[in-house]
């Protein structure tokens, strides 16, 4: 990680990596969604409405993985003062919030035909909504901190503390009785038939690569903006 401490070196890797992640992710997402929506079998119980899974589950994973990334970057920022950590965390926040919102919206649309409701305040749904609010708070806090010219310590602490919500989301369906069903995928075990699992994993990998491409693009934009601001300050002086 310390190899990437130098922004110039980071950019040298990030610049060629971005199109690979972007196009690769776009292609895999398209493949996963097409096989899922058009060719995978319907569910024995839910029929065709199960196809929302190919969007819902990858976005849920990435919404949570995004905050895990924010927490790790915040840790690196506080402990090692890694110069790119704050930028990485800020770059993750917006796509993380968008993916969480897509997860909530698609889940709501899935809930109507299966459970018979768009929204209920059960443990899983509530904790996922809290994650969205955490993201919105993070973005507001990071922006305010940046405008004030702060080094982002408070934002980093918020990012770490917010990670508490991740185990709560994960275990909500185990700890509490919920309307949401339990987890289908564990390490080495799947309760999803392989004809549906492969499109799901393809789509999840594709969305992950896309997520990575978005984060890299946002990091490069932020670094470029920093450079411009520094130059403007020098010119003004």
């Amino acid at each position: 990680m310390h190899i990437l401490a130098n922004p110039a070196r980071f950019l040298k890797i990030a610049r060629p990596l971005t199109p690979w992640l972007g196009w690769g992710g776009g292609g895999l997402t398209l493949l996963g969604l097409c096989t899922g929506l058009l060719f995978a079998p319907p569910d024995y119980l839910q029929g065709d409405s199960v196809r929302i899974i190919y969007l819902h589950v990858p976005t849920a994973w990435l919404g949570m993985a995004g905050w895990a990334g924010i927490a790790i970057a915040s840790l690196m920022q506080i402990v090692w003062r890694h110069p790119l950590a704050a930028i990485a965390a800020r770059a993750v926040a917006l796509p993380g919030a968008v993916f969480t919102a897509i997860c909530l919206a698609s889940g709501s649309l899935w809930g109507r035909p299966t459970w018979g409701t768009y929204w209920q305040w059960d443990g899983r749904m509530t904790s996922m909504l809290v994650l969205l609010f955490l993201y919105v708070g993070y973005i507001a806090l990071a922006d305010a901190d940046r405008e004030r010219g702060g080094e982002g310590r408070i934002t980093a602490i918020y990012g770490l503390v917010g990670a508490i919500n991740l185990p709560i989301i994960h275990y909500s369906v185990l700890w509490w009785r919920t309307l949401h069903q339990g987890q289908s995928l564990g390490l080495g075990s799947s309760k999803i038939d392989s004809s549906m699992l492969w499109p799901l994993l393809t789509s999840a990998l594709g969305f992950s690569l896309l997520f990575g491409a978005i984060v890299l693009m946002r990091m490069r934009t932020m670094l470029a903006r920093q450079k411009v601001e520094a130059r403007l300050r020098r010119m003004a002086a």
């Binding site: 079998p41 319907p42 569910d43 024995y44 119980l45 309307l179 339990g182 038939d193 549906m196």
Partner: peptide, 29 residues
């Protein structure tokens, strides 16, 4: 006043279903 259906964590195509469309679940969670 309101009835919601709760399904379990299994997803599979209908052809593999031996239980006449019945929904089996081992737990309430």
């Amino acid at each position: 006043s309101e009835i919601l259906a709760k399904h379990d964590e299994n997803y599979r195509p209908p052809v593999l279903d031996a239980g006449k469309g019945e929904h089996k679940s081992s737990s309430l969670k």
